[in-house]
């Protein structure tokens, strides 16, 4: 065996005595808190900038592509002069940059602009958006719980039948478009068995009249996303199973459940959080579609009208709201990642 004389001793300078002694505990923790706040601020800023970038892209894309609200809302017989007047009325004749900054600076105040029909977008979305958010939120919670449970169940029995069945079912589930699944659910749970109401009826406050009306839309949204996230949880746990400390925990004779939940899962959480956060967009978008099928009083109905009426501002406003909601979930995922990153200094 070869040994280097000089430096060999220095190479092993990992003695606690030579390691820098930690300062007074309180100053240390205050320092740490300050550092954490700084990091959190940086993440918040980055996410906000990304959201602003999305809105910029959306706004520009809408402008570059042919057609605008004035031509779109015009009737067939309108003259060119009438359209020009409409354009002026809607402020479309002003430069792109000016309109964009106006729109962007108004956003934080809750002003989402004016729709093609001259109504405030914020007013149009005030009632439906919370309903959609509730639907997507319920589906999100169900997705998180179910995919964690199923993923852990599969990972606890690698290669066995439970694992394979869960794997194939998950693959099947995430392939089915949510509106197709919703149609199937209506057929089975409502029309053939009569267990659940097929159509959502809103009460006086604009909310679904009964909570049972939420069941089918939520299932239709959650099942495909659960399929997708179960696979992510399973794969993340598989990666963690090879980590040295998980291997060591197994050699310490700890139970499979304990090794999985205490040693493998915390390390897999960053990946899982990212995966589930990515699902938020699918859930929100899916909610819009499923709502039209169930006549749920959410964004779906408003947006269907917006598409028919070529109302770009309304859709851009919805994009801003959805983007803000997704940003919040991504920030939560950032938090989970920071908590479980493992450096833990």
């Amino acid at each position: 065996m070869a040994a280097l004389t000089p430096g060999a001793a220095a190479a092993g300078s990992t003695d606690p005595a030579t390691a820098s002694p930690p300062g007074p505990a309180r100053a240390h923790s205050a320092h740490r808190a300050g550092r954490a706040a700084l990091r959190a601020g940086a993440v918040l800023l980055r996410r906000t900038l990304v959201l602003a970038a999305l809105l910029a892209v959306v706004f520009t894309a809408v402008e570059i592509l042919p057609g605008d609200a004035a031509t779109a809302t015009a009737d067939r017989g309108d003259s060119a002069a009438a359209i020009a007047a409409r354009r002026e009325h809607l402020g479309l004749d002003r430069p792109l940059w000016e309109r964009f900054t106006d729109w962007m600076t108004a956003l934080p105040t809750g002003d989402l602009g004016t729709s093609a029909r001259g109504e405030k977008v914020a007013d149009l979305l005030r009632d439906p958006f919370p309903n959609t958010l509730a639907l997507a939120g319920a589906a999100f919670v169900l997705t998180v719980a179910a995919s964690l449970a199923l993923g852990c169940l599969a990972a606890a029995r690698p290669g066995r039948r439970t694992d394979r069945v869960i794997g194939h079912t998950a693959t099947t589930a995430f392939a089915i478009p949510d509106f197709v699944l919703a149609t199937g659910l209506v057929l089975v749970l409502s029309l053939w068995t009569g267990w659940l109401p097929a159509v959502t009826v809103a009460d006086a406050s604009g909310k679904p009249a009964e909570w049972t009306m939420m069941i089918m839309p939520v299932l239709a949204l959650a099942i495909p996303q659960t399929g997708w996230n179960t696979r992510i949880v399973r794969a993340a746990l598989t990666d963690q199973a090879d980590a040295p400390h998980v291997e060591a925990a197994r050699l310490d004779g700890l139970s499979t459940t304990r090794v999985l939940l205490r040693h493998a899962l915390p390390g897999a959480l960053p990946v899982i959080a990212t995966g589930i956060a990515t699902s938020t967009g699918m859930l929100l978008g899916g909610a819009v579609v499923v709502e039209t099928l169930f006549n749920h009083p959410g964004m779906g109905t408003v947006l269907a009208g917006a598409v028919a009426g070529r109302d770009t501002t309304l859709i851009a406003g919805s994009v801003a709201l959805a983007g803000a909601a997704i940003t919040l979930v991504l920030l939560a995922a950032d938090l989970v990642r920071a908590k479980t990153a493992g450096a833990g200094r």
């Binding site: 070529r310 770009t312 994009v319």
Partner: peptide, 24 residues
């Protein structure tokens, strides 16, 4: 960064936007 931005746009809304801005 582009992927970060794209994640914020639900595909359904994205399609509505394009379909709107490009009616034909």
């Amino acid at each position: 960064r582009a992927a970060d931005v794209a994640i914020l746009l639900p595909s359904v809304l994205g399609i509505m936007l394009v379909a709107l801005a490009w009616p034909d």
